[in-house]
Amino acid sequence: MPEGDSVFRTARMLHSALAGRELTTAELRVPAHATAELTGRQVLEVLPRGKHLLTRIEGGLTLHTHLRMDGRWQTYGSSERWGGGPAWQIRAVLGNAQHTAVGYRLPVVELLRTGEEQRAVGHLGPDLLGPDWDADRALQRLSADPGRPLALALLDQRNLAGIGNVYANELCFLAGAGPWTPFGEVARPDRVVALAHRLLGLNRLRSGHITTGDARADRRHWVYRRAGQPCRRCGTRIARSTIGAPPQDRIVFWCPRCQPGDALSRRTEHSPETV
């Protein structure tokens, strides 16, 4: 599932291609909105909200989309051939005289009144990359359940919006706490929140979710997807397991030495709220 910084870049791409231009093509290839008529309307703006995308359209309408695991928006020039996947995977097409935006494998395609956007995103916590970012409010939400494992608390978009599995794993390492550590036992949780905001901010205009400061492909992360490899700090082999209850369980990676505690004895059946 894309992290908040990836969604931020997607919103910038779509805004650049669509905002301020009249739609000459508009197809929503989902049963609920297949007959919606949007051509002739101007796209006003495209905004990210956590992992959600809000495309605001003239006339008080908003197209709400979410990428989840496999969804993708791609933009093309007016005469450019589309190449993001077979036609049957296309869920939305928005085009103007210069560009066409094509949404592939989008699991969420919802047309709603702009005044009702809260129905789609009102449950989200403070957006790590949004104008409403409020570190104190995010910390308050996280602290409301002190027994919840750190990784799951960070993944819960109702606490703070934008963290996916990459950052959840990396933040646990940087906090020196195992993924199962109860949030209430994390030293200086305010620093974890501040670091989450800093990391997503630094990566919002570049790919790779870099947490080590090294942009090389094999050096970007401390623990994520490094199971069996030596810890970059102490040399201990990185461990791998799962956290949460199926089907929403997540893979976690940690260093048994740098993130002390009997991690496997802290398994939980509480799943993250990932949307």
Results as ranks from 00 to 15, higher is better:
residue 3 E to S: 03
residue 5 D to F: 00
residue 6 S to R: 11
residue 10 T to L: 08
residue 10 T to F: 06
residue 17 A to P: 14
residue 21 R to D: 13
residue 27 E to V: 13
residue 29 R to Q: 09
residue 30 V to N: 02
residue 32 A to M: 04
residue 32 A to K: 10
residue 40 G to D: 09
residue 44 L to V: 15
residue 45 E to C: 11
residue 47 L to S: 13
residue 48 P to G: 03
residue 48 P to L: 03
residue 51 K to E: 04
residue 54 L to C: 09
residue 62 T to G: 00
residue 64 H to S: 09
residue 68 R to M: 13
residue 71 G to D: 07
residue 71 G to C: 11
residue 75 T to P: 09
residue 82 W to V: 15
residue 85 G to W: 08
residue 92 A to L: 10
residue 93 V to L: 15
residue 109 V to P: 03
residue 118 Q to M: 12
residue 123 H to R: 12
residue 128 L to C: 01
residue 131 P to K: 03
residue 132 D to T: 03
residue 133 W to S: 01
residue 134 D to P: 05
residue 135 A to F: 00
residue 139 L to H: 00
residue 143 S to T: 15
residue 162 G to Y: 03
residue 168 A to R: 01
residue 169 N to C: 11
residue 172 C to G: 05
residue 178 G to V: 11
residue 178 G to E: 06
residue 183 F to Y: 05
residue 183 F to S: 05
residue 186 V to C: 04
residue 192 V to T: 09
residue 195 L to I: 04
residue 199 L to P: 01
residue 202 L to T: 13
residue 214 D to P: 08
residue 224 Y to H: 13
residue 224 Y to F: 15
residue 236 T to L: 08
residue 237 R to E: 13
residue 241 S to L: 06
residue 245 A to Y: 05
residue 248 Q to D: 11
residue 250 R to F: 11
residue 250 R to H: 07
residue 255 C to L: 09
residue 256 P to D: 09
residue 261 G to H: 11
residue 268 T to M: 02
residue 275 V to R: 14
